[in-house]
Design a protein around this nucleic acid. Structure first.
Lengths: 160, 160
DNA sequence: TCTGAAAGATGTACGTT
DNA sequence: AACGTACATCTTTCAGA
């Protein structure tokens, strides 16, 4: 399992902050910022990756540029609540679904989906309903003031 | 402005797909995968960055490991709908807010927030309400079957 | 827009403290 | 744990097609 934050002390936090801000930072730059040698930083990054604190690296892309003009939240609940609930598995193959959260409240899951057009949203909702035997309640995103901001990696307790 | 997807043709799509899967891929590896020379790939990546198709690179982190154990959706609407609505600006300084979406429907905005504990969520909700003069409706995330999956960069029309 | 080459910068392993 | 060295690899630029 991934380590607790209490295992992640000051320098590691600086490394994580730097890499969330720029995932392609060189070890040389990283070393300068945190005040360690290149090899020490390299070792720490490897440990952070192994411990699962850093899960990977990605390019952030413009969804508009990729012709995914429509973002929406889709709240779902089972059509028949007595049946086994494995909606996430049944929906995983739909690549338009970016995220799937199990939530408290009236709905069972909240999905974040991205499609090209209203027509594609309609088609996707039909697929979701039939694939997982659920009803859907959709909230269309009109604009995105901000999104995916890096977490504030704040101070914490002692290293191990 | 960022380019339309119609400007992004096959090789660029392959590059974008590869970099969303691994944001730290070397140009050498990228070149091999897309079947171009290193310098050609390098040039294409630079153009994708300049055009805003690639907006940047980040490390994906484990929120649990960073002691952000509680994720929630916070739907907000103005307490007084007659006043000017600049909630996103007024909330931007709250680093616990990862994303802010303007949405259609009964609510005005949907926030995705991450905090350490229920106590911190309570404190954050108070801050949100007073900072933006809004009411909140919060949906707690119980678990996250999947999240932040890369978009399917599908086929598209002609390059420019 | 591609290629190939050359120079400098960086990644990575390893031995030392 | 961290450092410094050393070698392999990668990045970056440029001329040429």
């Amino acid at each position: 399992m991934s380590g607790k934050f209490s295992d992640v002390e000051e320098i590691d936090r600086a490394i994580v902050t730097a890499l969330t801000a720029d995932g392609r930072l060189s070890y040389t730059d990283l070393a300068e910022r945190v005040g360690l040698s290149v090899s020490a930083v390299h070792q720490r990054v490897r440990r952070l990756e192994q411990r699962g604190v850093i899960k990977g690296y990605t390019a952030r892309v413009s969804y508009e540029a990729l012709d995914l003009q429509l973002t929406a939240f889709v709240a779902i609940r089972p059509f028949d609540p007595s049946q086994p609930d494995d909606a996430p598995d049944k929906l995983a193959h739909l690549s338009e679904i970016e995220s799937c959260y199990s939530v408290a409240g009236e709905d069972f899951y909240m999905l974040l989906v991205r499609v090209a057009s209203p027509g594609e949203l309609e088609r996707l909702l039909q697929q979701i309903r039939t694939a997982a035997n659920v009803t859907t309640r959709t909230t269309v995103v009109l604009s995105t003031p901000y999104e995916g901001r890096p977490p504030a990696v704040s101070a914490s307790s002692t290293p191990e």
